[in-house]
Nucleic acid binder design. Structure first.
Lengths: 206, 206
DNA sequence: AATTTTTTATTGAACGGTCAATCAACAAAA
DNA sequence: TTTTGTTGATTGACCGTTCAATAAAAAATT
């Protein structure tokens, strides 16, 4: 069985097994024995490819984070300089992409959030992600709103997205993706309408 | 030192020490040794008053949850049959009460959220709380909005509150309570304005 | 082509450490 | 004397890591 070039294969297997183990038993009981068993390998392999359990957990978070980044980027790539609304919808859709709304990934995110409070490497990853979402949203709102309003709109939408996501993860019935996206769209629409009213009113005064 | 009637005193001490321990080291490293040390008692006391660590954690969550319930109830008690907007503001204010926005409590909430995914007793508590928030919001919106719109407004506001809260817990700079409340107020205003527009438009058609 | 050697992949038992729970013993108040 | 409160060493279970041993493929050598 042993061949050359196993590293990328085993890494993928183990990350996938980690997601499944966290889904099954939670981060606290996602022992390396459980993860290794799920991946069909021995416990030693984990230290061999990830230099310990922490390395595997960090790699798992990086993987999920990378999927999220790609989900957003793919949707925005085709848009070019489309209106802000289109970009905002793309960001929303990316955040509710299939890769981010499976049971195992949502549970893993939640576990990592809690864990990142006391684990520096995870904290760094999580904050980069948070800022990226806020920054992307803020940028788009800025194209039609004054600085202050754009920042508040971005803060609100970021919180709404994370909140919908959180409640979806916790809810018995899971996350209703279509409904969540619609609520986020509505928030965007209202914020942009506000911008339009301001401009209309400004014109009235002119 | 040993006297009679120590139970309520020790229970309060230990719950407080648990919050501090979770703030300090996270739920994973909030060992009974650490908690006991913080409370200035021996480890045996925990099993004596809470029948084990799980009992203490559940009691801690109940305590935080009870504080939240009281924070909301106190604010709403004085309102009577005030307009929906006042009640909605009271619910928002209660959720951002001082008892819920300290570092230790926010960290504890986050840890319990993650933990409740795999721990039935905590799951039950968390779901009761989630439903109560949604139900309270839905009820108030229903006074001025049709069923469907009221439910969506409640879902959106609940998510926004939890999201603001979550991002506040994760952010380096902590939660800006005033700003969070303002964003939630804005959401309420928009939802209620929508209702007003509908009625206005309906009158126009009449 | 047949062989030895080296490299890469993998195993799983053994080890050191940590944790929650237990309980015999003790102390002070009732 | 009985009850209530408290201690902390002990125990048993479990976890992550390590590492000597093994096996197969690749490379080097004959």
């Amino acid at each position: 069985m042993p061949k050359v070039g196993m590293q990328p294969i085993r890494r993928r297997q183990l990350i996938q097994a980690t997601l499944e183990a966290i889904d099954e038993a939670g981060l606290a009981d996602a022992t390396i024995a459980r993860i290794a068993k799920r991946a069909g390998v021995s416990t030693g392999i984990i230290s061999h490819y990830f230099a310990g359990k922490d390395g595997l957990l960090e790699a798992t978070m990086r993987h999920v984070l990378s999927d999220l980044g790609n989900a957003v980027l793919e949707r925005r790539a085709a848009l070019g300089d489309a209106p802000p609304e289109a970009h905002l919808h793309a960001i929303i859709d990316g955040n509710f992409d299939r890769s981010q709304t499976s049971r195992s990934v949502m549970k893993t995110w939640l576990a990592f959030w809690a864990s990142s409070m006391h684990h520096r490497p995870l904290q760094r990853l999580q904050r980069v992600n948070d800022r990226r979402l806020y920054s992307n949203l803020s940028c788009q709102f800025r194209r039609v709103l004054p600085k202050r309003e754009a920042r508040d709109a971005a803060r609100g939408l970021a919180a709404l997205i994370d909140g919908l996501w959180l409640r979806g993860a916790l809810a018995q019935e899971g996350l209703n993706v279509d409904r969540a996206r619609q609520l986020a769209y509505d928030y965007v629409r209202v914020q942009l309408e506000t911008a339009h009213h301001s401009r209309t009113r400004a014109n009235d005064y002119a």
